[in-house]
Amino acid sequence: MTRSPVFETFRYAAILLALAITLVPIIWMTSMAFKPVSEWQATGADLTWIPKRPTFENFRYLFGQSETTLIVALERTATKPILASLLSAGFGTLIAMGAGTAAAYGLSRFGSGGNLPLALIQLRLFPPMAVMIPVMMMWAFLSLMDTWWGLALIYGIVTLPFAFWLMKTFFDEMPREIEEAALVEGCTRLRVFLKITLPMMRAPLASATLFVFILNWSDYLIALLLTTRQWVTIPVYMSSLASSMTGQLYGAKAALGLIAAVPPVILGIMIQRHLVRGLTFGALKQ
């Protein structure tokens, strides 16, 4: 359908405004990440959107290689928090995808675990804050506090609903003729699942995995409660980049924020096609 020029003008104007609003916070943080200490808190006429003297100093500072004497040296570098985030989100994703995929297949094909859909919806519905006290007590009891594997376990549970629902919709859509043919050929059902179904579902599995990883990578609250020192994740560590002595370490925080923000944005754009399905629990497919 052809649209009037007035509409086209309006469309571009509205979209440009939306783009500007979308990008302002991102641009500001990116700019801050490359600003030297002297520009961190510049206000009024000195406030700049593009650093006057761009520098990698903030990144070096995070990894303990800064020569800047203006700010105190970091007690701990960002290396281990980044590792903590990677390990906990990565293994949490493995747990969620493993348990979720298996259960989704069991329900989709054999009707097992009929209680799972409702249970998982409820799990999704609860604010994590409302179950954290017993979780903290259990984690303390099991010596899982302040470990990346303890975090991975809870991440695996929290994102299990997404893994389950996503994979269930994928399995529901998959034609069953090939599986049935393999069964007739004499394969056991487990072999069919492992050797035929899963390889065929490689692409959906990859999308679901990335989706679940983004969710785990984005957590703040759970890590805030379950890690204290050894294995704090990026967002928790980020909050610690301020003290009464140093004040807000704006540039360093922004640099870390950039490091934290880039992977999910890239992954998210990669799996754009499946975002709607993932977010709506498979109720909506694109």
């Binding site: 979308t22 991102i26 983004i214 984005s218 980020m238 934290a260 999910p264």
Partner: peptide
């Protein structure tokens, strides 16, 4: 993009 930015960030 915004929905993919880590909420803490």
């Amino acid at each position: 993009m915004p929905m993919m930015v880590v909420p803490a960030v």
